[in-house]
Design a protein around this nucleic acid. Structure first.
Lengths: 155, 155
DNA sequence: CCGTCTTAAGTGACACGTCAATCACCTGCC
DNA sequence: GGCAGGTGATTGACGTGTCACTTAAGACGG
């Protein structure tokens, strides 16, 4: 016999609802800003920015996927499109014949360097600057707690 | 001349990163649980649950879309699939010849009633129960602040 | 070395979401 | 009443994400 669930309290519902709505709206707004300012999708931005922060602007495909929490398949498809647009190129991996390395092209580099400032402003405007330092701190802690729980057991 | 952006401080970056990772992981986990427990996607669940909470288990299509923060188009496509599966039906609207009303079928009603308890447990396990009441409160406030800013100006 | 097992990456088919266009119907003004 | 413009809803085409599968290559015990 299944136990009756512990339904959410009013406060818990408020938090859960607010979270879901915040995500939907915030994400949509950031995507709009990003598209207008730089002609990029959030996915594009994330790939470019992860690569831009990588040593030598290059990274093994699966390393990139792990770091971004993307499936390999998703990344593979997306890289194909970005390569088409000239933002990245794939190279063979010297040390592992199966492997591939993605590299930011010059255009990719320019693109992310131009896109970053307005994107940061957008994140500030719609999120960060609305919160007090204390709220930022609590928020970070919450996120890390949840992430920690969800990734414990991963080696 | 564009001003140099105010890059995020370390604390701000922590919060932003934690948020993005939390969303990715939490969403994926909830979707996995939901699919295993009830064979539903999150989108399915959201529609069923919104309809289940509606008077008479029915709602005008665009009213539902607004309430869920979905585009009409998305909802229309999704309702088509759910109708195919027998979870909802569309009826004509008595008071507006253009309008349509979506209604939960008996099967849709049974489905959401069975799906809700394990989903709530899942939300608790991976999120709510990891936080203190104080954290829940701060989190709700943050969400509402951000949502409020993003929706101000909507009538 | 050889066969098996594992791992890196890409692929194809399908499900989903978005955007723009469409169609039917309502509303309001002359 | 009739028509000009707005609104509710759907549709089709397209871009993107997922899942299952394939291909190629490293790892490794015998």
């Amino acid at each position: 016999m299944t136990q009756d669930p512990r339904w959410l309290t009013e406060a818990e519902q408020r938090a859960w609802q607010a979270y879901r709505r915040m995500f939907l709206l915030l994400n949509a707004q950031l995507a709009r800003d990003l598209a207008q300012d730089s002609g990029l999708s959030e996915a594009d931005y994330d790939v470019l920015s992860a690569l831009g922060a990588s040593p030598d602007r290059r990274r093994r495909v699966s390393e990139l996927a792990d770091r971004m929490l993307w499936s390999r398949s998703r990344l593979s498809h997306h890289l194909a499109r970005m390569q088409q647009r000239g933002l990245v190129v794939r190279e063979e991996c010297a040390t592992d014949g199966r492997g591939a390395v993605v590299v930011l092209t010059d255009e990719g580099t320019r693109t992310i360097e131009r896109a970053a400032p307005p994107h940061v402003e957008s994140v500030r405007r719609h999120f960060i600057d609305l919160l007090s330092p204390e709220q930022i701190e609590v928020f970070a802690t919450i996120g890390e707690t949840v992430v920690g729980r969800l990734t414990e057991g991963d080696h």
